[in-house]
Amino acid sequence: MVSRSRLKSVLTGLALYAMAAALIGYFGVNAYTGKYGLNAQQELDQEIIALTSELARLKQERAEGEQRVSLLRSDRVDPDMLDERARYQLDYVNPHDLVRIKPN
């Protein structure tokens, strides 16, 4: 009987150590590969860089569009911009213009 209780206490201790090791391993793996882990942080950093560059491109595009719109304001109309828009709207081409057709 004495040997069984000793074996039982040893197995209980080993089981506790195994459960603790499994729990630590679980949290360790999740700290590395989980939703908010180290890999996710690196991916988020790369996404931040990509979105920052896209934001800069879109700001530049918007500034160019605002500049073109400002040329068409009724208080001061740029003749070249007005001519370009009229030709585009009416599909008019000057005989001296070079036309390049882009395939869709």
Rank of each mutant, 00 (worst) to 15 (best):
S5E: 11
E64A: 13
G25H: 02
Y32L: 14
S3T: 09
Y92I: 04
D45I: 07
L58M: 09
N94M: 08
R68H: 08
Y26E: 05
L51Q: 07
Q42V: 14
N104R: 04
V29Q: 05
S74V: 08
E61T: 06
L72I: 02
V77N: 01
D83H: 08
E43N: 15
T12S: 12
K35Q: 10
D80E: 15
K8I: 14
A86P: 00
S5D: 10
V29D: 06
L72V: 01
D75W: 01
L55C: 02
Y88R: 03
K102M: 13
Y17A: 07
H96M: 09
L11T: 06
R85Q: 07
A18T: 04
A15Y: 04
I101S: 05
R85M: 07
T52Y: 07
K8W: 09
R100A: 14
L14P: 01
L7H: 12
G34S: 00
S5H: 04
A63E: 07
Y32M: 13
L7P: 03
V93Y: 10
L58I: 14
R62P: 00
D78M: 03
I101V: 15
S5V: 04
D91E: 12
V77Y: 03
E47I: 04
Q46Y: 13
R87E: 04
N94Q: 04
H96N: 13
L58H: 10
Q67A: 15
L58P: 05
Y88E: 09
A18W: 07
S74A: 12
L16D: 11
E66R: 12
R76Q: 12
V29H: 05
D45K: 08
K8E: 15
V2N: 04
A22R: 05
L90N: 03
